[in-house]
């Protein structure tokens, strides 16, 4: 049975802060940070936004673009590392908001930055086995870096939702595989507000090893080479890592550019690869082939080989905002406002 993407929706909050502004406050060279990370601004959620509201905005856009009865959705998984509740699934609110309740399997997933693609795989399995007709996988985050930490320059907010099914597919998922090891490059202990990381250890043995291996294994499985793909999307904790990964594997900047969002919005964690895919699909043509490799610290990579189908010609993209439109309608804020919005100021209880 063919399984693939039937619809999708994306959401990026409107506020932005620049590395220059963050560096100004912490006595660091923000300009050099921006250049080093290839991040010119990052998205910041409004105080009334969280993973639940971002997931709902993306899921509602996804539903607007197709004429599908939400009651036909049999599973919904929200992947995030910043679920607003430790106990009480984000997905229950999302399912209710798109009126897919109550006959639906819901769970929240966590795998650092790749929980969204892990959800896609879980839903693919259920659709492919005939357990459900449609399933929804969402990757969304409102991640935080500790004030003054290198992560603060990148940790941002956003998400995308994918409706997976076997009918009226706009993009067929030809294959998926995962590469997982115990690699402690980045973590957050229960009850801690900010994550910790292994600094440079997050590069070679973590990101580059897992993404590189998963990409190579996928191309080996499919009998493809970089030249066979129109677009490549790698997890994007910053703009530089995916550029380096692309170069190491033999992909061009042109293949990478459509799905590379960190220069404008930073690292949206579980939202990163899903938003990159949404950005590629927004302007994709039938026949376009996409290699997508997510990465989650801890660590693992999910690789997907995707082919855009003729059905995308009839896809009602205009029914919801495109990624490009959300990159335009922005408002820059200063660090004080950012600190207030992100709860970094100690208020009187």
């Amino acid at each position: 049975m063919e399984v693939g993407i039937v619809s999708y929706g994306a959401y990026i909050p409107r506020f932005r802060i620049t590395p220059i502004e963050i560096g100004r406050v912490w006595g660091q060279d923000g300009k050099a940070m921006a250049k080093g990370l290839y991040i010119n601004s990052k998205s910041v959620p409004s105080p009334d936004e969280d993973v639940v509201t971002i997931a709902i905005a993306a899921a509602r856009s996804m539903m607007r673009r197709v004429d599908i009865d939400p009651a036909d959705i049999g599973a919904l998984y929200v992947g995030s590392e910043s679920h607003p509740y430790a106990v009480k699934p984000s997905g229950t609110v999302v399912a209710e908001a798109i009126e897919a309740s109550p006959l639906i399997s819901v769970a929240d997933l966590e795998f650092a930055c790749k929980a969204g693609t892990a959800g896609m795989q879980a839903v693919m399995g259920q659709v492919g086995s005939g357990m459900i007709r449609y399933g929804v996988a969402i990757g969304a985050d409102t991640s935080q870096g500790a004030p003054g930490d290198a992560l603060e320059y990148s940790a941002s907010a956003g998400g995308a939702a994918f409706l997976i099914g076997s009918e009226n597919i706009i993009a067929r998922i030809n294959s998926t595989l995962s590469y997982t090891t115990d690699t402690p490059d980045f973590w957050r202990r229960e009850g801690q507000p900010y994550p910790s990381h292994g600094g440079r250890f997050t590069g070679e043995p973590a990101y580059f090893k897992h993404v590189g291996e998963a990409a190579k294994m996928m191309m080996e499985r499919m009998g493809t080479s970089p030249a066979d793909y129109n677009h490549v999307i790698f997890h994007q904790p910053n703009g530089k890592f995916p550029q380096r990964m692309a170069k190491m594997l033999g992909f061009t900047d042109e293949q990478l550019s459509r799905g590379l969002l960190p220069p404008m919005i930073g690292n949206t964690y579980s939202g990163a690869v899903p938003l990159g895919l949404a950005s590629v699909l927004d302007t994709a043509s039938p026949g376009d082939r996409i290699l997508m490799v997510a990465y989650g610290s801890g660590a693992g990579s999910d690789a997907f080989d995707i082919t855009v189908t003729d059905t995308i010609r009839h896809f009602n993209l205009a029914a919801a905002p495109t990624v490009a439109s959300m990159l335009e309608n922005t408002r820059e804020i200063d660090y004080a406002t950012y600190a207030k919005y992100r709860g970094k100021i100690l208020m009187k209880g």
């Binding site: 009334d48 936004e49 905005a57 908001a97």
Partner: peptide, 15 residues
């Protein structure tokens, strides 16, 4: 859909 309030840091969130 947005957060419209909560019952404090350990309380339920209202959307």
């Amino acid at each position: 859909l947005r957060k419209i309030g909560d019952e404090g840091p350990s309380g339920v969130i209202h959307y």
